[in-house]
Design a protein around this nucleic acid. Structure first.
Lengths: 232, 232
DNA sequence: CGAATGATTTGCGTTAGCGCAAATCAGTCT
DNA sequence: AGACTGATTTGCGCTAACGCAAATCATTCG
């Protein structure tokens, strides 16, 4: 990918959106690239945090492993999302592992390089704060859901969240454009593979979802899912 | 409180720690104060976010009410903690309500005033990011706990987190220096009042805790609590 | 002081969802 | 095509934790 193509991608990201074009070109020029095949990891939880990344295209799943060997899915990241920055800002090791769920291209900058850019263009700091604030809001929402709602509602909410972030409209409904296993959903909602499977089966019977085994999930009746997610 | 006293408080806070003394004096001079009696709220969830606050002394409980009327405790805030800033940065209404659990004094700055200060002293932006990053880390940790651990472990972890943030050493153990009800603990850990009560009763029997009804909780055997929190 | 209010404790029946196990299925590899 | 691998489905029993209800206790207020 040449600098120009990189700049075009960056201009579309929330993080660099609205910046002067010349600045974005310069930032794009400073980036290195990396291409991940499905199941490749960008870095490992526990590694020293050295780089900021931004997803150009593709999709990453951000996993956190607990001390006792369990796994939770913190989020999925798509084009324009920043990866690793929070850890770099805090000067702590990366707290989670990003794994490609499909072929994914990322750009990267060293911590130092990004610091230079941020002091040169202070608006970047504001963007970074907006990004972190959004992350806080999302985490608080999930904490609230998992604390107060039962499993079925949480699964519905998780699917809707993914749809809102990455859904692709088709003629029959909204498609989740990357492979999403029952296990993934279980680890996003704090439940088990089995319960997710049962719940999705019921929804498929009801005609709310469609999901031939390995193909991508399609939400046929988003409205019905929202109803489930909000039912008192 | 005069400017000098305010500056002394600020210098001890994580947010302003390490700044040039003259700068802190100036910031202190720009602050207004507010004094809250127990159970008074600083603002309401849903109010437009207009001010940044910092706790001078006392203690706030940050509550979030869900659309269906349930309540969760996001955190307790003590001296030096920033309140409201994340919402102000994001230009969204305050997402939660801070309530004083004891007499509490806060300083406040308008959004505009703080923006001026932050552009004048860029190091403040870095401090704000560190604060937000810490919040993200804490939320991820709680999400992970509530997703994977059973209730007893979560309650132990919640008590230990409070002890780490606000514990006061006494000759018999560590005291939590503000009133903390079973209900509060339930809303912090995503369980019920009843389960918390049963669990604490068992611990009191075991000699791990001490907590005459209305008096403050004292952890007699922190080590034992840690053991419970970490048991596989 | 005695009543009233609110928090806490505790017993008990219920159940959502877990965990195990086995069967099934889809896609891949040879 | 046939064997293999990993994901998914489904049945079944179990239990952690909930939810209700009643009793107890502490504190405040008249």
């Amino acid at each position: 990918m040449d600098t120009e193509a990189r700049a075009a991608v960056l201009k579309r990201s929330a993080f660099f959106h609205g910046l002067n074009a010349a600045i974005v070109d310069k930032i794009a020029a400073a980036a290195l690239e990396r291409l991940l095949k499905p199941n490749e990891t960008l870095f490992q939880q526990g590694d020293p945090s050295t780089h900021h990344y931004i997803v150009a295209w593709g999709r990453l799943r951000l996993d956190q492993t607990t001390p006792d060997g369990k796994n939770i899915v913190l989020r999925f990241m798509g084009p324009g999302d920043l990866v690793g920055s929070v850890a770099v800002f805090r000067s702590i090791p990366y707290p989670a592992t990003p794994t490609a769920v499909e072929e994914t291209r990322v750009f990267q900058w060293t911590s130092d390089r990004m610091n230079e850019l941020m002091s040169e263009y202070p608006v970047l700091a504001a963007k970074a704060m907006a990004m972190m604030g959004g992350r806080i809001g999302e985490l608080q929402e999930r904490l609230q859901q998992i604390s107060t709602q039962q499993v079925e509602r949480r699964i519905a909410a998780a699917i809707l969240r993914i749809v809102a972030q990455s859904g692709r409209k088709t003629d029959v409904g909204v498609e989740i454009p990357f492979p999403l296993s029952r296990q993934d959903l279980a680890e996003m909602t704090g439940t088990t593979l089995h319960t997710v499977s049962r719940t999705l089966s019921a929804w498929i019977d009801e005609g709310v979802l469609e999901g031939k085994r390995s193909s991508h999930l399609v939400v046929l009746k988003p409205h019905r899912l929202m109803q489930i997610a909000e039912q008192a």
